[in-house]
Simulated scan of single mutants.
Amino acid sequence: MKNILYFAVVLLLGAVACSKSEIPTWNEKPRVWFTKANDTTLFSFYSQPEGVEKYAVEIGISMAGGRVATERTVKIEDLGCTNDTSRYEISAVIPANQSSGVLRVTVYKTVNLGNAPDTIGFRICSSEDFEVGLNESLENALVISSKLTRPAWWDKSAEYNLGYYSDKKMEVIMQVEGAFDTLNAGGYSWYSDEIKVLIYKLNKYCKDNNVKYSEDDESVIEFDYLTK
């Protein structure tokens, strides 16, 4: 009987010790980080209707911690851009009662973007409301342009499925509804049914509209394994 009582006391003390060690975690500040680690987002005014002079690009922010009933600002350090004539404004919030938010970058269609793309860098910082988390996910970049630019997702894997990058192929992707948004989203398998259907639509568009590589090469553009 004494042994049973002894073990019961030990278990009770252990439970109290565990509860004391867990209590502080409920009082810690929430932590925030960019949803996609060290990612580069591409935006081109080329993809927008004529006359659009500014556009709000959203970059996802994740949060770990308690939700509250008010909107909270995430502190973002602007790391600057490569061309000081570019214009942009930033704001970042976690909306009320939400566990995620966005960095909203409002970019303007300045003249320099027609000559060369520009890159803007950002870093999430600690603030009165948030600590930072996931150190590898604290920085992000946005590439802006007014003309066609090879996107970051068009890598070796893309070449095995779409072929080598060209402005003509990018024009087709911009023309087919939803194609750019799907490919730019990432996180998919190149062998998924969704991507296979999309590649079929791209090739069908080229055939139906007789889209050729150039005046010198009148063959119809093809999206396939290492095609030109």
Rank of each mutant, 00 (worst) to 15 (best):
K2D: 14
N3W: 12
I4R: 13
Y6P: 00
V10D: 01
L12Q: 09
L12T: 15
A15H: 10
A15G: 12
V16T: 13
S21L: 15
E28G: 02
P30M: 09
R31S: 13
R31H: 09
F45A: 01
Y46Q: 12
Y46W: 12
S47N: 11
P49I: 10
G51N: 10
S62T: 12
R67L: 11
R67F: 00
E71T: 15
G80D: 03
N83G: 05
T85N: 15
I90F: 02
P95N: 07
A96T: 07
G101P: 05
V105A: 11
T110K: 06
T110E: 13
G121I: 00
F122G: 00
E128Y: 10
G133H: 02
L134E: 14
N140R: 10
P151L: 00
W153V: 12
W154R: 08
D155H: 10
K156E: 15
S157A: 14
S157H: 12
A158V: 07
D167C: 02
K169Q: 05
E171W: 09
A179F: 04
A185T: 12
Y188L: 09
W190P: 05
E194I: 10
E194C: 02
I195L: 15
N203E: 08
N203H: 07
D208K: 11
K212N: 01
D217H: 05
E218L: 15
V220W: 07
